[in-house]
């Protein structure tokens, strides 16, 4: 299949990109989700603006409290980053398992968040890591918790004209892991569980069990209240609403949550 007619511009600065998006263009980052949708004509933007020409959107660095990952940093770089591995291993875990090597060579952390697919790996891990994004728009820059970024299928709280410029991941000792389950290696995640065990308690999030990535609040509540892992897993599916599909029933997906939480918790605890 073939994309519909479109107008392409390549932004050379964030301001240029913001102006284009404000004028109605769809931002093109790695294109690994958007391009297939355009080829199938499930998406037919009249204009796209390529963020691939803005050097400041690429790269991983740190300050005292946070790791800053440029929105256009590709998954391969995130997976290979010692810095991310040291402070938020689960984010590196997730990046290493997205798509195929070819997809990881093009797909970006910002694109993954902005696309807001409910089966995407990256958002759940960033939620568990307590990460935020910096976004730039016509009214300047603001910061949004990843947890507050995605509202439903392919929908974010970004205002018109806003683009994600940076992902900010809090630094800390890494006791975190991401466990996911899928059919073929290349397939979308059916269910994934991200767990971060920090000084202030356990944070957990899941993908594939709602129309967006979700915090596993009941699970966290039990663990942070001193309860056992078994007790936490018994309540893990509270509030989640997976959809039955060719990849499994609602019951199966709720069950997988527990299985994967146990895996992720063991892995996180051992790190």
């Amino acid at each position: 299949m073939i994309p519909s007619t479109l107008a392409y511009t390549k932004a050379s600065s964030i301001d240029e990109a913001v102006a284009a998006v404000a004028a109605g263009a769809v931002p093109l980052s790695g294109g690994q989700s958007l391009m297939p949708m355009m080829r199938l004509r499930l998406a037919a933007p009249e204009a796209i603006v390529d963020l691939g020409g803005i050097p400041e959107l690429v790269g991983i660095c740190e300050d005292e409290n946070e790791i800053a990952v440029g929105a256009m940093t590709i998954h391969r770089e995130v997976a290979a980053s010692e810095l991310i591995r040291a402070h938020a291993g689960l984010v590196a875990d997730a990046a290493a398992g997205i798509g195929s090597p070819q997809v990881r060579n093009r797909g970006t952390i910002g694109g993954s968040l902005g696309h807001a697919d409910p089966h995407s790996d990256m958002p759940a891990t960033l939620i568990a890591a307590g990460a935020s994004v910096l976004v730039r728009g016509p009214n300047g820059e603001r910061r949004i918790l990843v947890e507050d970024l995605i509202t439903t299928y392919l929908t974010t709280t970004l205002e018109p004209g806003e683009i994600i410029t940076q992902v900010r991941i809090p630094k800390g000792d890494d006791h975190s892991a991401y466990a996911k389950f899928h059919r073929r290696a290349i397939d979308w995640t059916i269910v994934g569980v991200a767990i971060c065990i920090g000084d202030d308690g356990v944070r957990a999030a899941a993908t594939g069990v709602a129309d967006r990535p979700v915090r596993l609040s009941a699970f966290e509540e039990v663990l942070n209240g001193g309860g056992s892992l078994d007790d936490a897993i018994a309540r893990i599916a509270e509030g989640v609403e997976p959809h039955a599909g060719l990849d499994g029933s609602v019951e199966y997906k709720k069950h997988l949550l527990g299985v994967l939480a146990r895996q992720a918790h063991a892995e996180a605890s051992s790190r």
Partner: peptide, 23 residues
Amino acid sequence: DTSTCGCCTVHLDGDAVLSCSTL
């Protein structure tokens, strides 16, 4: 049509990428 099969793999600036999901 879906970036699944890899038949279109080429190298772009030295990295293996899918030429069917790159403009």
